[in-house]
Write a protein that binds this DNA or RNA. Structure first.
Length: 209
DNA sequence: TGCCAGGCCCTCTTTAGGGCCTT
């Protein structure tokens, strides 16, 4: 699971990352973490400071963005990634890697899109609202990279547990989440039946487990 | 001159428009 804090919404408009966190999840548990602020040489807009608490002074004391991105890219390796509203983190992940001459080489799954399929009754798909809806513990400081990455990891594990309980699955893979997020509304059961894995046995000819 | 993220999703739709979600 990864989460960026940035100076704005779009790297194509000159926005840069200010903080990144990556949380490694294995066998249903968080087993490792990476978190760092990064200095890309930009001033932090007041709105961003109000939202995240991250100030220009804080990023000026942080390691260079190039160093941080190299470290986190090594930490992540080729592991498949999950992010909440992954379209946002995917474009910054690609843009910041591109600045250090590296390329994104993993698939992204979006916990927000998966939540839309698995929890159609949720009143909102904001990360904090889903955490509250699922009865999961909220982080003390939202809108910071590590706190948001950990909340998104707990949300994704909750969604996996829901799928396992509802469809009697043996496990839920990143590939199955990737298929679920692209499944038209109301076709969750059909998707799981085609691509899921029940009690360790493939139940569809195109299963990906 | 006017606009300016962008992908997904819903509906008063599909030859479109607007809201959500991320910072």
């Amino acid at each position: 699971m990864i989460d960026f804090e940035t100076t704005g919404l779009s790297p194509t408009d000159g926005d840069r990352a200010t903080e990144i966190a990556a949380v490694l999840v294995r066998d249903g548990q968080i087993v490792d973490r990476y978190q760092s602020m990064m200095n890309a040489g930009l001033r932090i807009p007041p709105f961003i400071t109000q939202l995240t608490g991250i100030t220009t002074a804080m990023v000026r004391q942080a390691p260079p963005a190039e160093q941080v991105m190299a470290e986190v890219a090594d930490f992540v390796g080729s592991a498949p990634l999950v992010a909440h509203n992954a379209a946002f983190d995917r474009k910054f992940w690609g843009a910041e890697l591109g600045r250090i001459g590296r390329e994104r080489n993993q698939a992204f799954v979006c916990s927000m899109l998966v939540a839309r399929r698995v929890l159609p009754q949720a009143p909102s798909y904001k990360l904090g609202a889903l955490i509250q809806f699922a009865g999961l513990p909220a982080a003390a400081r939202a809108h910071r990279a590590l706190a948001d990455a950990e909340m998104a990891a707990h949300l994704t594990l909750y969604l996996e547990r829901e799928l396992i309980r509802r469809f009697r699955l043996a496990s839920v893979s990143h590939a199955l989440l990737g298929r679920i997020q692209k499944t038209p509304k109301g076709q969750l059961q059909g998707c799981v039946t085609r691509h899921g894995c029940v009690q360790g046995e493939r139940i569809g000819s195109r299963a990906t487990q």
